[in-house]
Amino acid sequence: MTDISQTSAPAKQPVIMGRRRIRMSDVVDHAVLILGALLMLVPVYMIFASSSHDAITIHREGLQFGFGEHFAANYNAALFEYGGFTDSVNGVTMLTNSLILGLGFAIGKIIVGMMAAYAIVYFRLRFATFAFWIIFTTLLLPLEVRILPSYEAIQAMNLANTYTGLIVPLIASATATFFFRQFFRSIPEELIEAARIDGAGPVKFFIDILVPLSRTMIAAMFIIMFVFGWNQYLWPTLITTDESLFTLVRGIRQIIQAYADGSTTPEYGEAAALAIIAMTPPVLIVVFFQNWFVKGLTESDK
């Protein structure tokens, strides 16, 4: 029997210098990714390029790849030229309306969702589980499904053509409640008990402990909900007939339609410009908040 002792480390393999071999699978992987990216980005680019042409060019030659000379004029018109039947709405008004809808929806939903989740997770309610499942089933009933009764209800409450009527029915759905419930349940029990011994009542616990702990989650929710609210089309179309309440997303179509009804060429350039404007805020929000977003969905720093 020989003694076992530490063996000396094997001589280091000489590092092979030179170019890394490119593997076939890498090429395929990248090709797929690049193709996917192109598929997403080329239409955006075409819209962007087209927004610098006048309507006649686009009408005659279709969407453009190169840049034209009407960039400033188109964006100026899209933002500041009053349009619609009543000439009471321009791009800035619609941008404001969209922002109000997006922010109101996101913030409202986060507040309602958090409070509902708080009640369900932390209080011994008689029908807490039942209530949760009731709330949960609304996931199966998005606004589009219940659009007629919702419309009736809002109409009956005289809330058509108001921001309230625009925002509140959209808030009524379970996504935020569901996410916050899952998040709250992952917070260790001891933390709650420590807070109880430290004399934090329900409200203090919510504000001092739960809200700060949820901030990444809140940020993630905010992004998702803002984009979701911003992109709403059907409900705003239905509930707002007053043009001063139009949002950007439906405004794009309105411009084309309004002009198309006449004998003139639809203002394709302006519509493209408006589309780019409509795209910008959600993109900016995602770009600036993406760190938070990823953290909120993956991190468990508790």
Partner: peptide, 20 residues
Amino acid sequence: VDPADRNIAMVFQNYALYPH
């Protein structure tokens, strides 16, 4: 009596510190 009013202090296994 509520835990907060018992004038006790508790140390937990996983520390239960407020992370924020």
